[in-house]
């Protein structure tokens, strides 16, 4: 089966042929399989946002190709438009895109643009609201009356309601408090489990990527530095640190323990793995 998203030598420049020409991404060739959960990590300005905007045809590559289900999305006007609905893109601080009178109408904006019937729109809006935990009462409120976290969730629901094959989220937890962060990450996880759709998550938090994603894509200076299963990527801790990136906090703790002479494994990426490793160690050390 063809991968859901495939890019071939994708290159993008901003402000081509002007004084302000900047290379955003160079020669990115990746394949993302159906149902995968990919975490994209990299510095600010490493090209993460540029890359994801190619997935749904918002940006046109200067050279190279983007294939959705094996078909070039820039083949025709219609294929670009269908890419918009196949790949749901949720930008950073999505709450700033809310504009309708009620939350319900705002979530319905996407499905309406798809040309769906009223009944279908209704089902989808309610389903999406369910994923993000918004009550029927909240749906009738003005989006501007919601709290910060609720606004964020309403905006995410607006993308989910299109029921895209691939859901791309650009730092969905930026600027939220710890509880808001956990809620949003939890609902993304649940959404994926319920729909089985492919999810791509751009994040600064190595912990979040380690906890949720199955694969990690590391971008450094406009190029793909690493792409593979999460534990494989994080096992290159030193290289990541050289790029000025990091490994999950718990991995750093175990690397520190190792440096201090404790016989622990450093391939520990989540708290759960850490707990097990410590238990194993204490079983080994104490009689």
């Amino acid at each position: 089966m063809a991968p859901v998203i495939k890019t071939v030598n994708l290159t993008h420049l901003y402000g081509e042929k002007t004084l302000f020409e900047v290379t955003a991404i160079i020669n990115v060739s990746i394949e993302i399989e159906k149902g995968e959960f990919v975490g994209i990590i990299g510095h600010t300005g490493s090209g993460k946002s540029t890359l994801i905007q190619h997935f749904n045809g918002l940006l046109k590559p200067n050279s190279g190709k983007v294939l959705l289900d094996g078909k070039d999305i820039w083949e025709s006007r219609e294929s670009v438009r269908s890419a918009r609905f196949k790949v749901g893109l949720c930008f950073q601080y999505p709450e700033y895109q809310l504009f309708e009178e009620t939350v319900y109408k705002d979530i319905a904006f996407g499905p309406k643009n798809m040309g769906l019937g009223d009944d279908e729109i209704n089902t989808r809006v309610r389903r999406a609201a369910g994923y993000v935990g918004l009550s029927g009462e909240q749906l009738e409120k003005s989006p501007f009356d919601l709290s910060g976290g609720e606004k964020r969730r309403a905006a995410i629901a607006g993308v989910m309601a299109m029921e895209p094959e691939v859901l791309v989220l650009d730092e969905p937890t930026a600027g939220l408090d710890p509880r808001g962060r956990d809620t949003v990450l939890g609902l993304i996880k649940e959404y994926r489990e319920q729909t089985g759709s492919t999810v791509i998550l751009v994040s600064h938090s190595m912990d979040d990527v380690a906890r949720l994603a199955s694969k990690a894509l590391v971008l450094n200076k406009s190029e793909v530095a690493m792409f593979g299963p999460v534990d494989e990527v994080f096992s290159h801790g030193r290289e990541l640190m050289k790029m000025g990136l990091n490994v999950p906090e718990v991995t750093r703790i175990f690397m520190g323990l190792r440096d201090r002479g404790l016989p622990v494994s450093t391939s520990v990426y989540t708290c759960e793995q850490g707990r097990r490793e410590l238990l194993r160690l204490s079983g080994e050390v104490s009689p």
Binding site: R81, F91, F109, N113, V159, M162
Partner: peptide
């Protein structure tokens, strides 16, 4: 630019 992109991503024509 950002808002336009966000709405286009939701299929705004």
């Amino acid at each position: 630019d950002r808002i336009m992109n966000a709405q286009k991503a939701r299929g705004a024509d």
